[in-house]
Design a protein around this nucleic acid. Structure first.
Lengths: 100, 100
DNA sequence: TTTATTAATATTGCTACGCGATATCGCTAC
DNA sequence: GTAGCGATATCGCGTAGCAATATTAATAAA
């Protein structure tokens, strides 16, 4: 049981909502971005998650070609923006107590 | 897929570490405390988790009798305190970006 | 002193997720 | 067209979440 890891995994979805709201990203981008924070997420975790979030209506996708590579860009739906707005204060409430 | 719920579940372990470090608590206390934040966690989730955290060396337990009820009080081990100290800045890093 | 009551803790069984390993797809260059 | 590469997708197993259920433990009632 790795407590920090499990916290991180719970947080990944929110992190994805946030980045999808700022600018589109592709799966590989997101893996790189998370690595930057010192966390590794494999494709076997990320892609099924992205599909689930699309089915849930949080993300929409768009196919593009960049530098000779096929990529799928994900961006936030209105539902995602609303969800993020609602979630933020709850995160703040939960986290601020522990961080004090 | 309930994104906020899944974030909360990842956060519960850290919440438990925090409260165990401040003062001992029993399972029923923790369920009440989490309810206060608007989250419900059932005994079928909480107690197996407490056992896992004990096996992992994060919690120790002590049996007490209070108001005619047998209760098991959990408190933080040194390992838990060290873990919490290490985890805090990482939480801050992950969360502050999303809360901006 | 049995039996009932109530609250706390524990377990079970099913479902769904994490994720390493593996496969597939799509583009470009040759 | 096909080789090579990077991005995306899937498979299979182990494990976590959790509602429902059972068990434990202490007191009160009979």
């Amino acid at each position: 049981m790795n407590i920090l890891r499990e916290f991180f995994l719970g947080f990944v979805k929110i992190h994805i909502l946030y980045h999808a709201g700022k600018e589109g990203f592709c799966g590989a981008d997101m893996m790189t971005e998370l690595d930057r924070h010192g966390y590794t997420i494999g494709p076997g975790t990320l892609y099924p998650l992205l599909h689930t979030m699309m089915k849930g209506g949080y993300l929409r996708s768009e196919k593009k070609v960049e530098r000779g590579r096929a990529r799928i860009y994900y961006s936030a739906t209105p539902k995602a923006r609303i969800a993020l707005r609602e979630i933020r204060p709850k995160i703040n409430e939960l986290v601020s107590e522990v961080l004090e």
